Amino acid sequence: MNRAQHWLTAAYSGSRWLVPLYPLGILYRYLMSRRERAYLHGGKTVWQAPVPVIVVGNITLGGTGKSPLVAWLSHWLVSQGWRPGIVTRGYGGKGAHYPLLVTASTDPAISGDEPVMLAQQTGLCVVADPQRVRGARELVGRGCNIIISDDGLQHLALGRDIELVVVDGARGLGNERCLPAGPLREASDRLSRVDAVIVNGDLSKPLPVPTTPMQLCPQRWRCLEDNHARELTPLPFTLPVNAVAGIGHPERFFNTLRGLGIEGDMRPLADHQRFDAEVFRFDEQRPVVMTAKDAVKCRDIAPADSWVLEVEAVLPPEFEHWLAVKLSALSERGCTHG
């Protein structure tokens, strides 16, 4: 376990060695609240796009399931007649020029892994840019009439019409303290000011706000070597396996594998970790399974017998209806689509 994973485990489990950091957490909370007020009251500039903006974010560090929700939202919006585009930070990318238009074949070393994955999964216009406003302007210029801001909750310079926050049901808000004393990017009362709180998986501890359930359901296997899809069952590989996961919450992926009856050597890696041949050095040679996010980084270096588990978010019809009503109200205010 690397240092980042060790700290995340402590923050979510409430380890007492974080107690001396509590005063810093209080200071961080104050600074974030002060920053939010500056944007709300005109002390800092907010750019409001001429099209609706939907933010998908979280208030905790570590993976919560934002990307599957972004993919689901992308497909749903297209089905409703919108022309969505996605703006994202492109964490881990080393792009020299922004805004960066990301396609399914973009080198993830330039754009980051998540933008490439989203481009592959959605087929939409995806723009990576550390300055979300600049990226959003690029999407508008390319004809998108609604913008999805991936992991954009704290990027307040970009105005938003709908805020969706994803919470990992298993880990919740951890010890409910702000960085560096806990996993919170913002105080937990921020949840009461967003439009919807979406819980990924079963909720282990109640939240103080109404929530919408989301499940990540395995759909198919994809052979990394030939990119061909296979049915979930029967398994297209032998057991046991070597599994790798360089995501915010690797254990969630490993639990999904176990739920499919898959056991083996499960190797957690750092979120957004770069892949090299060393990642695939295991004690025994076996089939390798991984996430779609990891797959974009290692097609040329992964063993031949490597498989990607494709998952999709499933949300209740009530949420779809709620979202349709929200967007209809925005259209009536002048943000039309079609």
Score class of each variant (00 low, 15 high):
Arg3Val: 13
His6Arg: 14
His6Ala: 09
Trp7Phe: 10
Gly14Ser: 12
Gly14Thr: 06
Ser15Val: 05
Ser15Thr: 04
Trp17Pro: 13
Leu18Tyr: 06
Pro23Arg: 12
Leu27Val: 09
Tyr28Glu: 09
Met32Val: 15
Ser33Arg: 11
Ala38Cys: 14
Leu40Thr: 03
His41Trp: 09
His41Asn: 15
Gly42Asp: 06
Gly43Val: 09
Lys44Ile: 02
Lys44Gly: 00
Lys44Cys: 06
Thr45Ala: 14
Val46Met: 06
Gln48Lys: 11
Ala49Glu: 13
Pro50Asp: 08
Val51Asp: 07
Val53Ala: 12
Lys66Asn: 06
Pro68Phe: 13
Leu69Phe: 15
Trp72Ala: 10
Trp72Asp: 02
Ser74Cys: 06
Val78Met: 08
Ser79Gln: 05
Pro84His: 01
Gly85Val: 14
Arg89Asp: 00
Arg89Ala: 07
Gly90Phe: 01
Gly93Ser: 00
Ala96Gly: 02
Ala96Asn: 12
Tyr98Gln: 07
Pro99Ala: 00
Val102Ala: 04
Thr103Gln: 04
Thr103Met: 02
Asp107Ser: 12
Pro108Gly: 01
Pro108Val: 01
Pro108Arg: 00
Ala109Tyr: 00
Asp113Ser: 05
Asp113Lys: 04
Glu114Pro: 05
Pro115Ser: 05
Met117Arg: 12
Ala119Asp: 10
Cys125Val: 13
Val127Arg: 10
Gln131Thr: 15
Arg132Leu: 11
Val133Ile: 04
Leu139Arg: 02
Arg142Ser: 02
Cys144Ala: 01
Cys144Pro: 07
Ser149Gln: 04
Leu153Ile: 01
Leu158Pro: 01
Asp161Asn: 14
Glu163Asn: 07
Leu164Gln: 00
Gly169Gln: 08
Leu173Thr: 08
Leu173Glu: 11
Leu184Ile: 14
Leu191Ile: 15
Val194Thr: 03
Ala196Gly: 05
Ala196Trp: 05
Ser204His: 07
Lys205Gly: 15
Pro206Gly: 07
Leu207Gln: 09
Val209Trp: 05
Thr211Arg: 08
Gln215Lys: 13
Arg220Gln: 12
Glu225Pro: 02
Asp226Met: 06
Asn227Leu: 11
Asn227Ser: 13
His228Gln: 14
Ala229Asn: 12
Ala229Tyr: 07
Arg230His: 08
Glu231Cys: 09
Pro236Asn: 15
Thr238Gly: 05
Arg252Val: 13
Thr256Asp: 06
Arg258Trp: 04
Arg258Gln: 13
Met266Gly: 00
Arg267Gln: 13
Ala270Val: 10
Arg274Asn: 01
Val279Met: 06
Met290Glu: 08
Thr291Ile: 09
Ala295His: 06
Asp300Ile: 06
Ser306Thr: 08
Leu309Asp: 10
Phe319Lys: 01
His321Asn: 03
Val325Pro: 00
Ser328Met: 10
Glu332Thr: 15
Thr336Met: 11
